[in-house]
Write a protein that binds this DNA or RNA. Structure first.
Lengths: 210, 210
DNA sequence: GTCTATAACATGATAGAC
DNA sequence: GTCTATCATGTTATAGAC
């Protein structure tokens, strides 16, 4: 029924097979960091979700901070791939930014990257904070490039500064999660995104009709 | 040197005097929830910061959730007062929204209200989540009213929906905290705010000069 | 109202057998 | 590589003395 892994044992946790113990530990940590943050995630919880014992975890990783770093690096990488695909897609600058803002999200779970910035132990660690900063900085930079392209093409109001509007776009998404989780509904996230897009939209007075 | 409180004892914590034990406990909890969130805040830490013993805390409050609720209610109330003063101030709609966005903040500490929405135990409790939702909802509603006024006065692009732009304004602030904490600098928060204001600014093409 | 004692359990990790 | 002790400390209370 379940194919045994290389050691011949059958994992008892959620990840049935095909994944190494180290990978299962990392994935379980990714999920728990997303759901409960760093301070709210215990090694015991990680082990249980990964179907691994104490000794197993401490064999592969030095401890909670080391495992969390591996998880954060992987989450950051995944996030760049997801966002990159949409931002590098076809369409005008407005359309690509719109596609990024309107993509499907597990809104009520929040952002797996942004969420960690509220964790005191994460922000206190340069090693843990660096990947968060790198990912958010990359996203903001990519958005600024696209906004600059759109500016050249006459899509946006000439008065905007791409770097600042890019920051506002990223902030709207991050803050949208906050509004949604406060209200217990995804509606507030969608409203914030629509509000931003309406401000950004090519104006009939200054831009050519699409 | 230190005036004794009503019981004649001298508190050993950070709050020297003049405040009741219950008030000191609430204030210590407010600070710790802001700094470390709900899961990261222990009763012991609260007691130490308030200069109160175990028995004292459990005499005044039923437990950690009860004390957290008292703290959250007080923080919510304080936040409404601060924001309300600026939003009810003088000036045009754009100027009042600008004043709210540009007010002094402890940016790197994050928002004492919004921060708690990332806490799984807070969001899981209707009692704890309600004041957060109430405060954010009130703020968004107040901003929407002001945007509506500005719309009537011809300050903004006629295409905007006040309720949605209000959500974008609140989200930009909340997300601005995320960007700032990720980078370890307040600059990103300021950029996001400037980016939003540049999108919202009365356009020379459609609005009368101020 | 405040204090100390006690308790049952969780945390984060180490040691050593298998 | 994985497992089961073991451990010191922290968590979240309750009990009862003062």
């Amino acid at each position: 029924m379940f194919a045994p892994d290389s050691t011949g044992s059958v994992p008892t946790g959620m990840y049935s097979t095909l994944m190494s113990t180290a990978d299962r530990l990392i994935e379980a940590t990714q999920e728990l960091l997303w759901e409960r943050g760093y301070v709210g995630t215990s090694p015991k919880a990680i082990q249980q979700r990964a179907g691994a014992g104490q000794g197993s975890m401490y064999h592969h990783f030095a401890g909670k901070p080391d495992l969390a770093l591996a998880a954060v690096l992987r989450t950051s990488e995944e996030m760049r791939e997801t966002a990159g695909r949409l931002l590098d897609g076809p369409g005008s600058a407005y359309e690509r930014i719109s596609a990024y803002l309107l993509r499907e999200r597990e809104v009520l779970k929040g952002c797996p990257v942004g969420r960690l910035t509220m964790d005191p132990d994460v922000v206190a660690s340069d090693a843990l904070r660096a990947p968060l900063d790198g990912t958010i900085g990359w996203l903001r930079g990519r958005l600024a490039e696209i906004l600059q392209e759109g500016l050249k093409a006459g899509e946006f109001s000439p008065g905007i500064t791409p770097d600042e509007v890019a920051a506002a776009v990223v902030a709207t998404v991050q803050g949208g999660y906050v509004l949604a989780r406060a209200s217990g509904s995804t509606a507030a996230f969608d409203s914030a995104v629509r509000g931003l897009l309406s401000l950004l939209a090519p104006h009939s007075t200054s831009a050519p009709a699409v």
